[in-house]
Structure formats: C-alpha cells, structure tokens
C-alpha cells in the first residue's frame, strides 16, 4: 500500500494553474488534486511569474486561460518555445472551448470541456511524451 502511494507520488504529473476567473481556477485545482497521478504545484496569474515558475517548479502541464482572441494564444507559442516538453491546456473563461498544445503536435481541441475530458487529454499527452 505504502509502496503504491510512493509509486504514484513519483509519477505524479506536475500541474501549474494559471486560470481565470478565480472560481474556475479553484475548480481546476480541486479537480487535479483529486487525481492520484497528478499534483498542483502552484497557482499563478502573472505571465512573467508563470514563465519562471515552470522551470522552478518543474511543471509538466500548464492550464491557462488565454486572453480572448483568434488564433493560437501568444502565450502558448512563447511557452512552448521556452519549454518544448511542456503540455499546455487552454481553457476559455466562458468555458466554451479548451485546447491542448504540445511542441510539434497539432493543437487538439477538447470537445465539451469537462473535468474528465481535460484530464484524459492531459494523460494522453503525458503518455505520448513518455513513449
């Protein structure tokens, strides 16, 4: 039992949350912390702090609310350029769309963004990196 716990802990995906509004951020935090294979390493709002914390906290995944607009959010392009192994999930504040970004992989739309569909997308992406 103890072994399993340690094993899980060693493999936990480290998630950094940069979502807005606060209520959504807390919901995402709650969703992640209930997963045995994931862990919230921090919550952050300032983009510069986000850049620095990814390295400091060794985040595998960033869940971010981009500014409204068309096309790929600027922040995703910048983050992937700096951290090629990073997985980014963007979730709009209104909740109508979520996308997963990885280096050299076309962005993936997460249909009907829900806790389950976002968690599944993160796990799939983590597996693709591991393999």
């Amino acid at each position: 039992m103890a072994f399993n716990e340690v094993k899980h802990d060693m493999r936990k995906t480290r998630v950094l949350i940069a979502s807005r509004p606060k209520l959504l951020s807390e919901v995402i935090h709650y969703m992640i912390q209930r997963q045995p294979d994931m862990k919230v390493v921090s919550e952050v709002l300032d983009p510069l702090e986000l850049f620095l914390l990814i390295k400091t906290l060794r985040a595998d995944v960033v869940i971010v609310t981009p500014l409204p607009g068309n096309g790929d959010p600027h922040i995703c392009i910048k983050l992937l350029a700096a951290y090629p192994l990073l997985i980014i999930v963007t979730q709009s504040a209104k909740g109508e769309a979520a996308y997963l970004y990885q280096t050299n992989v076309p962005k993936k739309r997460i249909n009907e963004p829900s806790a389950q569909s976002i968690l599944d997308a993160i796990r799939q992406a983590m597996q693709s990196i591991a393999s």
């Binding site: 209520l23 919901v27 709650y30 209104k94 909740g95 109508e96 829900s114």
Partner: peptide
C-alpha cells in the same frame, strides 16, 4: 445553471 460545463460540474462536486 451555467453553460460552462467544467465550472458547473466542478462547483457541484465542491
């Protein structure tokens, strides 16, 4: 009542 599924389900769970 919220059209944001993640928020709706998340608030309900919490």
């Amino acid at each position: 009542a919220d059209d944001n599924r993640l928020l709706r389900e998340g608030i309900a769970s919490m």
